[in-house]
């Protein structure tokens, strides 16, 4: 009896966490759909088959690097250069997984591997925000991440199949949904002056590198500059 009730309790809680994760990611699903559509359409325009476009979305699952690859695409593609470009664009994932590791420390090994394999900016940021308030459960993380992954695949497929039918979604402002959500999350990570210093360093480096270098170097540059700023001692406790 006791065990059965405990199991039911745990199942109920897991179910609640899946729903909570799904609710949290909902606005991101709406926002990512047009981006996936555009990626699918661009990929087909570059000569990829719909199946190839979907395979890239399924296996790479990192929008920024996929668009960079489309920018650099040749026929036949230069696989080594494109693989290296993906690494550079995605360097920030190293920092992100280092930070997320502490929140998923109690996940089973297979869950952990899956958690990192489908870690992207959006679900990562929402999971980090959740972990600052309460324990991050596998149910919440996958309730958050799997629909997002699924939407990326579905929208890529739709874009690849519909291709040029898709019009410009810019007037709707949907492309702004990601920066908007990131800004809201940013405000939540504020913890006083040290955060201000980190944000200033990150913004400065990011804008500078964005202006000077093509590609997505600016994200890694901003992230590293922000991380470096975290070591600048501001308060008296840190001097000792």
């Amino acid at each position: 009896m006791q065990t059965a009730r405990q199991t039911t309790d745990q199942t109920t809680r897991a179910g609640g966490d899946i729903v909570a994760g799904l609710k949290t990611i909902l606005p991101m699903l709406v926002a990512v759909a047009p981006i996936g559509l555009v990626f699918g359409a661009v990929a087909v325009g570059k000569g990829l088959s719909p199946l190839e476009a979907m395979a890239m979305s399924a296996l790479v699952f990192a929008g920024g690097s996929q668009f960079v690859a489309m920018d650099l695409w040749t026929d036949p593609p230069a696989w080594a250069a494109l693989g290296f470009a993906a690494l550079l664009v995605n360097l920030r994932l190293i920092l992100m997984s280092a930070s997320l590791e502490r929140a998923v420390a109690d996940f089973a090994p297979a869950q952990k591997l899956a958690a990192f394999a489908i870690m992207a900016d959006e679900n990562w940021a929402l999971a980090e925000a959740r972990s600052r308030r309460q324990k991050l459960t596998p149910a919440f993380y996958f309730g958050l991440s799997l629909p997002f992954y699924g939407m990326w695949l579905v929208s890529t497929a739709a874009g690849a199949l519909l291709g040029a039918v898709i019009g410009d979604t810019r007037p709707l402002g949907l492309d702004f949904a990601f920066p908007a959500v990131f800004i809201v999350l940013l405000m939540g990570f504020w913890k006083g002056r040290q955060t201000g210093l980190v944000l200033a360093a990150s913004a400065l480096a990011s804008i500078l590198v964005h202006a000077l270098l093509p590609g997505a170097w600016y994200i890694a540059a901003g992230a590293l500059a922000g991380l470096a700023a975290a070591f600048i001692p501001l308060s008296r406790e840190q001097v000792a």
Binding site: M96, S99, D121, F189, T195, S202, I219, G222
Partner: peptide
């Protein structure tokens, strides 16, 4: 500080 630093950079 990684989350705010990455988000700000993006």
């Amino acid at each position: 500080t990684v989350p705010p630093a990455v988000l700000m950079a993006v």
